[in-house]
Design a protein around this nucleic acid. Structure first.
Lengths: 206, 206
DNA sequence: TAGATTGTTAATCGATTAACAATC
DNA sequence: TAGATTGTTAATCGATTAACAATC
């Protein structure tokens, strides 16, 4: 017998559940229900139960879900029961904001290096990091066994840098450049383009 | 007879089509096809044709789509055949990056004001903007008839600021705070939390 | 116990794909 | 004309919701 692979759309909701549960934990709450989670998230209770049931049985009938327990289970499922080292390419304003972003804390990630190709920037500091020469990206990232990169270079350079990232052993890329990049099978890309999000909303304006 | 409302999932793909078409235009291309667009985007040609057909007939059999024409049509559909004024709340690193982001150019948006509540920051400059007191947000945004806001304040403050935004007549909110916000019907929210995206990817790691 | 809520099945709903006539 | 590609319909596929037995 073989395991069913989980749909991406389901995996994509788990971080939202986790984020809300961690927020509840901060509020000092002990238990919650699919209904309450659904109300906070604008998702139906049935869908939340169905999503969670793909991974196991985490609740108790009549009671709901222990927040601490479900949190720790989701962290295991999402592999954030540890801290992943992440690198940033591009030391402009976006790279700067990512390198200093306080929101990674307790959520499974930390930035450990920043690269740029501009000789003016190389050697300068961003927070606790020296900006490194992008020419050293491949050996340095390989050596550090980094798997995750955030890409914050201009669109023109995005594909070229992506190729380097893959050569360096990166398999997960969060792309802030407003362009689609080509990657081989097995490499995962998430896109973050604020204009795409704004345009989804401006459709509703007149 | 009444018009069918377009599914959100379709509207959400239009900005990707537009972005790719604008890129092709930069490359000096004249025409494209649903197949080529699909290859660039990792979307099936059939889906692209189906999506576009919801809004009209933009192509020619045997030839494909005129890039300039389809671009201008998508801009009209997405209401970015004009430039929308956008405000930023929160003058930390994220707000800073948004206020100075060069990628809005030619894509329908421009930042026109930045607010923060920190007296240390108020009056300081970010690029061409004076950071304004959040206390003046409601009258100022109302006066300027701004409809779109980017929210880059700490999670703790997000709901309170959201309420102010709505009071100011904002109907479209791009939320960078890692928390769900409650809004009344008719207000649209898009979420941008890099950790949510990273966790979708770390699921695939081991 | 009575009330509440889970996990799961079946039914419904919606989105994607395949296929092709129309036609440039 | 022959080849290419659209717009659209029907078929398929997948996701969401409703409902409820199980049970805490």
């Amino acid at each position: 017998m073989t395991y069913k692979t989980i749909p991406n759309i389901v995996v994509g909701r788990l971080p939202l559940y986790l984020r809300t549960l961690q927020r509840m934990q901060q509020e000092g709450r002990q238990v919650t229900s699919s209904q309450e989670l659904g109300e906070r998230l604008g998702i139906s209770a049935a869908q939340i139960r169905k999503d969670l049931s793909q991974f196991g049985e985490f609740g108790k009938q009549g009671t709901g879900y222990g927040i601490e327990y479900l949190t720790s289970q989701l962290q295991k499922i999402l592999r954030v029961d540890r801290v992943w080292d992440v690198l940033v390419v591009g030391a402009g304003d976006v790279g700067h904001a990512l390198a200093r972003y306080p929101g990674f804390k307790n959520r499974g990630f930390r930035v450990v290096m920043v690269f740029d190709r501009d000789p003016e920037k190389i050697g300068q500091r961003i927070g606790e990091f020296d900006i490194q020469d992008i020419a050293s990206l491949v050996p340095t990232a390989k050596e550090a066994k980094i798997r995750i990169a955030m890409l914050a270079v201009p669109a023109m350079e995005a594909q070229e840098v992506t190729n380097k990232l893959i050569e360096a052993g990166i398999t997960e890329i969060l792309n802030y450049a407003p362009i689609n990049i080509n990657v081989p099978p097995g490499i995962h890309v998430e896109y973050n383009d604020p204009v795409v999000q704004l345009q989804k909303m401006s459709y509703h304006l007149d």
